[in-house]
């Protein structure tokens, strides 16, 4: 199993400069051209991700949470360079990968892998599991026999029966198909796996299996994850640090435990209070912050703080001036918040 170990050992160091981060993102922006209407005229461009920055240490898990349209999936796709950022930079292991060509990216691809939401639609129905898992290895120049042996090893690693290597995706349940997707992502011994809603399409009783599997793999292989999800309970479970996104920006980022126990941004507070707890007595006791309205469209973001139209604490300043992401004076030192009036 030693072949499964990546080059770097598991060293989940905090990204405070003590060790160089595995991934470093600075002012990352992604602007999509506006949709063409029936008359052929283009709408306003959509800034899906608007200047975000964060570091990720080797072996660390960063949870990205937020509602639909907040830019979390776009961020994930830029990190593995399925999308080329409009501006800003992504540094992977000290190397700027922001605008590398597909050819120049290929040797790096083995370190940057992705797990998708819908396990069945992300697996080719006409390929056997052997082919699906070994494909990334063949691209990296492995011999067919070695790649097949490696695929069987990986199936064992993710809890599938290696004898099923010649079966097709439809012969597997949703949870097993997601295991195949995870095995494929691990084939090349990556150092970063971006998982975009990896459990939200699965049955509730199967989600815990996949969460446990991903945690075990991280421990054994020293992987770094960017775990994208809208389910705050799942993100809390798997993450070391969590970034909360709203309309293309990070509004709060910090150590998981402290962020969930003492959220500083009004949006984080509202988001946490909106999650229904599986405990009727606690639900009746709880005071909920109910936000009005829907998240605004990224095509027409409000001026100032983009959260101000829904914010229960909004002041005149919030309508005109965009708050920067900084360590709040009254908040914990490990936390950055983009709010003029953080905390209570």
């Amino acid at each position: 199993m030693t072949t499964l170990k990546p080059a770097a050992g598991p060293a989940p160091a905090p990204a405070d400069g003590s060790a160089p981060p595995l991934v470093s993102v600075r002012d990352l922006t992604m602007t999509f051209p506006g949709k063409r209407s029936a008359t052929g005229r283009r709408g306003a461009p959509v800034r899906a991700v608007d200047g975000i920055s964060f570091d990720l240490a080797a072996g660390e898990t960063l949870g990205l949470v937020g509602e639909s349209g907040c830019g979390k999936s776009t961020t994930g796709r830029m990190l593995v360079r399925l999308l080329e950022p409009t501006s800003g930079s992504i540094t992977f292991d000290g190397r700027d990968v922001t605008h590398l060509s597909q050819g120049a990216l290929r040797p790096l691809r083995r370190h940057l892998q992705m797990v998708f939401q819908d396990p069945h639609s992300s697996l080719n129905p006409r390929q056997t599991v052997a082919r699906i898992i070994s494909d990334p290895l063949l691209v990296q120049g492995w011999a067919a026999g070695d790649a097949r042996r490696r695929a069987a090893e990986l199936m064992d690693l993710v809890g599938l029966i290696p004898e099923h290597i010649d079966r097709y995706p439809h012969e597997f349940s949703g949870g097993q198909a997601q295991r195949i997707g995870i095995a494929r992502s691990l084939a090349t011994s990556p150092r970063l796996v971006v998982a975009d809603e990896p459990v939200s399409a699965l049955d509730v009783s199967v989600q815990a299996q996949i969460v446990n599997l991903m945690e075990r793999l991280r421990r054994e292989l020293g992987l770094a994850y960017v775990f994208i999800a809208h389910d705050l309970s799942v993100v809390k479970r798997v993450s070391d640090r969590v970034a909360v996104m709203y309309l293309g920006r990070i509004v709060e980022i910090g150590d998981k435990k402290s962020l969930y126990e003492d959220p500083q941004h009004p949006y984080t507070r509202a988001l946490l209070s909106a999650v229904p707890l599986p405990d009727p007595a606690a639900e009746r006791r709880r005071e909920r912050i109910t936000l009005l309205g829907d998240p605004p469209s990224p095509a027409a973001p409000p001026p100032g703080c983009s959260f101000h139209p829904r914010c229960p604490k909004a002041q005149p300043l919030c309508k005109t001036e965009r708050p920067a992401l900084t360590v709040a004076a009254a908040g914990p030192a490990t936390r950055e918040v983009a709010c003029h009036f953080p905390g209570d």
């Binding site: 009783s205 969460v211 799942v234 599986p278």
Partner: peptide, 25 residues
């Protein structure tokens, strides 16, 4: 009982692995 035990929860310490239900529906 298995469903309730397997849920990640906001009020959980996250110290132990989730108690997953094996298999599929």
């Amino acid at each position: 009982r298995g469903l309730l035990d397997s849920l990640p929860r906001l009020d959980d310490s996250d110290d132990e692995p989730l108690r997953a239900i094996p298999g599929s529906p």
